[in-house]
Design a protein around this nucleic acid. Structure first.
Lengths: 192, 192
DNA sequence: ACCTGAACACCGTTCAAGT
DNA sequence: ACCTGAACACCGTTCAAGT
């Protein structure tokens, strides 16, 4: 089909994004990489921001799909830890995609919102499963899920910004902070 | 002194940043707002990124100074909560400054690094004071401070991106997540 | 030491055509 | 329906002068 061009445009944009951030995603170079003219993108996307939103949507769907695969292979608590680690690894490997996916989310397409809601729902269901086993403290599972998401997001953001590299030794990597939080939560679940 | 021009340039850049993000900070408009030509900024800053870094440094110093004022007016745990709330309030009121201060931190000036290190040291000292009173769990205070920072940073980031507004009701505001984490930590401190 | 006006290269976006 | 080349406005940056 002719939508092939659209997919090639997105792929080219992702390549440029990974190399130099959103500023490096010039529509002229996107067109050249995709083998079309410098303003062919305007037949597939409203503007540059719309193209970036398409990348964010595709990336978010990828994260959501991966979550679906990782769940079910592990008991709830282990699934949570595995999920968080996979998320951190993705953010480290593709920092520009991570930053973009949590940027101007407002102008995001419905597809982006759908993928994000899907990922959120999966996370909440794991939290509920862990609560049912008394492996996490009781309370609103949405709120516990939000706590986990916020910590992972913040720890990765700090690592990418160089905040966590302040100490000489490697304490306080995102992975460490995730383990710490899970530890406190698990401990709090096993109370009198 | 003639450094007055530099201060006026930074003030103009902050005004434009607050209005429309880094993209709205055009050196031409910065110059016009400051009453100089469109390339006078190059006599005070290496390039646009350097001007933005100067804003980040100034803003970080403001945060660090506020921390110093808030500490000492409260016992440790209350100081932590107050600090976190002040931080969240600042990020909500000036989202573009918040995003900038945690962006390309890498190219940041020494002044930025100094201000950030200063804020971090103050936070760590409060954590230690709380640990000494057994109001926070034992362990590396740097790591506990990193956990708090990551949560606050992540919760604010999600709120600004619209992630936390998913549920109809206002659960899971950054303030709620801060309280939740503090609650789990306090509970974990009072163990057998 | 600090500032200015002119100029350059680059980019997002639009438009009138082309198939 | 999709693509192209030319053109416009805007921006970061540099340069040769000015005081």
């Amino acid at each position: 089909v002719t939508t092939d061009t659209r997919a090639r445009l997105v792929a080219a944009a992702i390549e440029l994004l990974d190399r130099g951030g959103p500023a490096a995603v010039t529509l002229r170079e996107v067109g050249q990489l995709a083998g079309v003219s410098h303003n062919a993108p305007y037949r597939h996307f409203a503007d540059k921001e719309d193209l970036l939103a398409a990348i964010a949507a595709q990336e978010m769907r990828g994260r959501s799909d991966l979550m679906g695969r990782l769940i079910g292979e592990h008991p709830p608590i282990e699934a949570l830890r595995t999920l968080a680690r996979a998320y951190v690894a993705w953010a480290r490997a593709k920092p520009e995609r991570f930053k973009l996916s949590f940027g101007a989310w407002n102008r995001g397409s419905d597809e982006l919102r759908r993928a994000a809601a899907d990922a959120r729902a999966q996370l909440i269901s794991i939290v509920q499963a862990a609560q049912a086993r008394s492996e996490l403290p009781p309370g609103d599972p949405e709120r516990l899920a939000a706590l986990m998401m916020a910590l992972v997001h913040g720890a990765v953001g700090q690592a990418l910004s160089g905040h966590l590299a302040a100490g000489d030794k490697g304490h306080a990597d995102p992975e460490d902070l995730v383990d710490d939080l899970l530890g406190y939560l698990i401990q709090s679940a096993g109370r009198g």
